[in-house]
């Protein structure tokens, strides 16, 4: 089982403007099992993005450890796919080349890379735009590419940093439904960071509320799948869970 384990993780850094050390993440321990979908939710500044960046290996930890499949992580690597809020697609590569990038870096033959990329593009209905450049796509389409680019590399865990925060509300709902569908089909392990309480509950098996760098609460989400907004928007269990999470997020 390729589980992701955070043990007493903390991060302090020096803020040159405040002239003092700031604690962004404090003693966070968390276990994400293979195939699990975990949302980390909290208001801005609660340390959730810092936490994700540490798991991705983009920034060093100052305390504790991160284990993936029992091994300590060391810097960024293809075992942890990342989907960014700003999409971070390569503008100089076509949609197909973007999605084929990971497999190509693994040294797979060109034909195999293209086959994988086309398969994943079809998964999100983007087979038609394979030859276009990212700038020619809408925000929603760009982030679909962002998601399948990370998935196409077959990572052990998919890290998503507020990936739907910069698309319009309707597109966001569609993307959320698509993501739950993909998760059902392929069962990737996902750590999803968001400030949107309903998004966190809608997507995940488990919601972790982060506040001031600490885990405030962990809640299981036993809602049935497949989940769609049509079904859940008036669902009392969904509403009760969302209300509970919201209460925790708002509590200081």
């Amino acid at each position: 089982m390729k589980n992701l384990t955070l043990r007493h993780l903390s991060k302090t850094y020096f803020d040159p403007y405040a002239g003092a050390h700031v604690t962004a993440v404090q003693d966070v321990s968390l276990e994400v099992k293979q195939g699990e979908f975990v949302s980390i939710v909290g208001r801005s500044g609660c340390g959730k993005t810092t936490l994700l960046n540490m798991i991705a290996g983009f920034i060093p930890v100052t305390g504790g450890e991160i284990l993936l499949d029992g091994r300590a992580i060391d810097g960024p690597g293809p075992d942890r796919g990342v989907v960014f809020q700003s999409f971070a697609l390569f503008p100089w590569k076509t949609v197909l080349q973007n999605v084929a990038f990971g497999p190509r870096m693994r040294g797979l033959p060109d034909a195999e890379c293209e086959r994988i990329a086309r398969e994943y593009l079809a998964l999100v209905g983007l087979a038609e735009v394979a030859g276009r450049y990212p700038a020619e796509l809408s925000g929603g389409m760009q982030q679909r590419v962002g998601v399948v680019r990370a998935l196409a590399n077959d990572p052990d865990v998919l890290l998503m940093d507020e990936p739907f925060a910069s698309v319009d509300a309707q597109t966001r709902m569609t993307l959320q439904e698509e993501l739950t569908r993909i998760w059902l089909e392929r069962r990737p392990t996902i750590v999803f960071v968001t400030h949107d309480v309903e998004e966190a509950v809608f997507l995940a098996n488990r919601v972790v509320v982060l506040s001031k760098g600490r885990v405030l609460k962990e809640l299981d989400v036993p809602l049935a799948r497949p989940r769609t907004w049509d079904r859940l928007i008036e669902n009392t269990q969904f509403k009760a869970l969302s209300a509970e999470v919201l209460q925790r997020v708002r509590a200081e």
């Binding site: 983009f58 690597g77 990342v82 990038f101 693994r106």
Partner: peptide
């Protein structure tokens, strides 16, 4: 983020 995206794609 471009560097980071490329790094985490291996």
């Amino acid at each position: 983020v471009m560097h980071r995206a490329a790094q985490s794609l291996g």
